[in-house]
Amino acid sequence: MRNNGILRIVARFLIPLILLFALYIQFHGEYSPGGGFQAGVVFAAGWILFVLIYGLEAGLKVIPQRAMVVVMACGALLYAFIGLLGVLLGGHFLDFAPLLPSAPKGAQQAGIILVEFGVGMTVATVVMLIFTMFAGRKSQIHLIDGIPDSEPVTYPEMNQDNSANQSTDTAAETRD
């Protein structure tokens, strides 16, 4: 697939459009259907399209897996932070009114936009992460399948696991 020229060219047009559309859904959610969740999914879809065409490695170069985990947590934390801000400013949790005491409507809008952004962040990265995990899993399995069955298979990871295990045991031992 990767070498298919047509796909690449179409993708080059499509992907930015998709991402743009995602941003539109994200920030226009108060006026038309859409919001953080849908935007996140669409954004992730754009990235997935990218991966399907350019390969997982390229995709991970753009957004590394670790970053996904971090952003995914940050999205949730952003939401929580906005909520907490309400508390810190003397209101209830997720109470947006105290954010801008002078303009209650504006405060609500700001709150909604911000939490929606948090939702979008989390959703987009989670979807990407899940996809990465599934896709990455496949390549790992193929790798193992390549080993002839007759050979006694030793898994390097397994051994690592094992030694890690033992080291914890000893650690626990000494602590006792």
Binding site: V69, M72, A80, V87
Partner: peptide, 24 residues
């Protein structure tokens, strides 16, 4: 803050701590 206002935090504290914890 009154006690009632603290009450939901018995849920929220672990809930908010979780994403942080995942990154540690």
């Amino acid at each position: 803050m009154t006690l009632i206002e603290w009450m939901p935090f018995s849920v929220l504290i672990p809930l908010i701590a979780a994403p942080v914890c995942a990154l540690l």
